[in-house]
């Protein structure tokens, strides 16, 4: 392939006639403005973006993937308050919810994030605080049983008197948690590993089932630090059995430094927002939410991660 690249470089040239034409234009250029066939660029367009309701998710790589239809529920970017639908209690609509801007605060430093995310054995083992992940379906848990303290994969069963159960996991390496998920959302972290180091023990996953043993929800979270220091990525996936769990909200264009939609290589639409050192990327469907918060990284770097996730959201 390298020899071919060299031949392409040697042979691919501006066509001779075009070269002579353009050279002649340069040679005869006068100081007055000429009529140049240039498209005027529209920089940072403020044209309002209304979310497309239905997108067919097709892999843009050459691997064969099952096509799925997803209704994305990402925030809708609107030009102003007047473009937000009014609340309506008559027809039962919940009405519109507006997400405010980020407030201009810079993101927390990596050390602070690590301290809050890192596994703490006291909390895990003693169960005096059965935390480790708020589950909106159940606000209170009653018991905890540690099943494994192996740093490669720690496991505990958190229970309720009514029989609902949350299996929780944490590990030195977040890749070890992938097998604990149910497959409703799948992703690959190899691309992340190429540019970022996982922060050991700063991760968590859990799967919740109800009293009958039926699936309720699952969660995955991991913290990654940039290999060259400073920046980090906090990666979260949440999935629920409840249909239409994630509704759509609105953000007003301009409340973030930038806000735009980005379709990843796997065909999933993310809403990307940047502000004061933070980059947020979120893909929301009715039942799943894939979310990256990047700090001290660029939107381009976050897009690169999104493109390497090999993401699938099933159902």
């Amino acid at each position: 392939m390298e020899r071919t690249f060299k031949r392409i470089s040697d042979e691919l040239k501006l066509p001779r006639e075009s070269r002579e034409r353009i050279r002649s234009r340069i040679a005869s250029w006068q100081k007055q403005t000429e009529d140049i066939p240039v498209r005027r660029p529209i920089l940072k367009s403020r044209v309002p973006l209304i979310a497309v309701a239905v997108v067919v998710a097709m892999a843009l790589t050459l691997t064969v993937a099952a096509a799925a239809v997803h209704l994305f529920r990402n925030d809708i970017i609107v030009p102003g308050v007047d473009d937000i639908p009014l609340l309506s209690s008559e027809n039962g609509d919940l009405g519109a919810f507006v997400v405010g801007g980020p407030g201009g605060h810079p993101p927390a430093a990596l050390e602070e994030m690590t301290k809050s995310a890192r596994f703490k054995s006291d909390d895990w083992d003693l169960g005096e605080r059965i935390n480790g992940g708020v589950v909106s379906e159940y606000l209170r848990w009653d018991s905890v049983e540690v099943l494994s303290r192996d740093p490669a994969l720690r496991i505990r069963r958190v229970g309720r008197e009514d029989g609902a159960e949350k299996m929780e996991y944490t590990a030195e390496n977040p890749a070890n948690l992938l097998g604990t998920l149910t497959g409703r959302v799948t992703f690959d972290l190899k691309g992340m590993d190429e540019q970022y180091d996982h922060v050991p023990n700063a991760n968590l996953s859990f799967v919740v089932s109800d009293a009958k043993g039926d699936y309720v929800s699952e969660y995955y979270n991991a913290l990654y630090a940039k290999k060259d220091g400073g920046g980090y990525i906090d990666f979260t996936v949440y999935c629920t059995a409840q249909a239409d769990y994630f509704g759509q909200t609105y953000i007003i264009d301009g409340s973030f430094e930038t806000a735009y939609y980005y379709t990843s290589a796997d065909g999933y639409e993310f809403l990307i927002e940047t502000d004061n050192g933070s980059v947020w990327a979120e893909c929301r469907t009715g039942r799943a939410n894939v979310n990256l918060h990047g700090a001290y990284v660029t939107a381009d770097e976050v897009e690169d991660i999104l493109d390497t996730l090999s993401l699938t959201i099933n159902g």
């Binding site: 691309g191 060259d228 690169d304």
Partner: peptide, 9 residues
């Protein structure tokens, strides 16, 4: 305006 590692990737 991207990192060297991003170029490599």
């Amino acid at each position: 305006h991207i990192g060297v590692s991003a170029v490599s990737m």
